[in-house]
């Protein structure tokens, strides 16, 4: 059952993509109406703050770690054994 479902999802890649974008848009739309009663800080009261936070942190995480830190601290797999 899983396999067929997954194969269907793979075959309908574009549909899945637009469904995902639609879901994101719907969440932000709902955020306009549902806001925290007692925001813990000012920005939280703006619709879409956590959407920007999630995307921004996700992008920053990957770029900083994979493009900067990883290049500095990665070593061959047998690094310790070969010493």
């Amino acid at each position: 059952m899983f396999s067929r479902l997954l194969q269907w999802a793979r075959d309908h890649y574009l549909l899945m993509k637009w469904l995902f974008f639609g879901w994101l848009a719907a969440l932000v739309a709902v955020n306009v109406f549902i806001l925290p009663h007692h925001p813990h800080f000012e920005l939280e009261a703006f619709p879409g703050f956590w959407a920007v936070f999630g995307t921004g942190c996700g992008l920053a995480f990957v770029v900083i770690l994979k493009k900067v830190i990883f290049l500095m601290i990665s070593r061959p797999e047998d690094f310790y054994e070969s010493k």
Binding site: V28, N31, T55, V62
Partner: peptide, 28 residues
């Protein structure tokens, strides 16, 4: 809603970066 926003948009971040985050056969 806050959790769904945070996590779903993290998913967007992954989608945009899916070619950068590819794992490499290395240790850190």
């Amino acid at each position: 809603l806050q959790t769904l926003l945070l996590l779903s948009f993290t998913g967007l971040g992954f989608y945009l970066m899916r070619r950068v985050i590819v794992p490499h056969a290395k240790i850190n």
